[in-house]
Amino acid sequence: MNKRMMVMAGLWLSLTNAMANPMTEGEEAILIKQAFPAMKFISTVDDNINFDLLIKDPLLVNLEKDLHGSPFLLASFVENHATQGGQVSQFTTGLLSASTLGLVPVVSNNDLTIYYRIRLQKNTISEFSYSKNFTDAGFLWAGPNQELTDEAKAWVESTVPMFLQDLRKDKKLKAMIDEYEYYFGGES
């Protein structure tokens, strides 16, 4: 009997919790449903590979590369930072490579991070970043290679849906759009 009562109490508790928190854990409400105002886009990512994907989304249909007067800016850029293990590997294989006059490749291990930054009047409103670890091998005499590998480019493209999902839930951007609507909403 006691066991049954405990089960019933547990069921009741979970039901009240579910009523108090209609969203499941980790889920946030979609706040932004309308398209962003005309916004300038700049990118340091090779060939602007994410621009074509971004502009297909209804939220970013007004994204343009040459919109010099807009107070809004979406910037995407990547950072490549060697991990601690990568630094050791780079150092030892670098020494080996230098002592063999560059015949042996330098092996590096980096955390590649892509940033999507939304700015208003040169002030960052929100920033979203996504990271992945990559191991690369390159020749010393080739110099530092700033270009992304094909694998890295594919990963950069895969971050676009994640960014668009996070973008829709951002409270600061919602407030920014609401202010835009207040002042310029009635204008075409």
């Binding site: 630094q87 780079q90 150092f91 670098g94 020494l95 080996l96 490579s97 230098a98 002592s99 530092p144």
Partner: peptide
């Protein structure tokens, strides 16, 4: 050769 290697490679590396 170790010193040369250190010089060549060390120039490009700071952490």
């Amino acid at each position: 050769s170790f010193c040369c290697a250190l010089l060549v490679f060390g120039c490009a590396n700071t952490a």
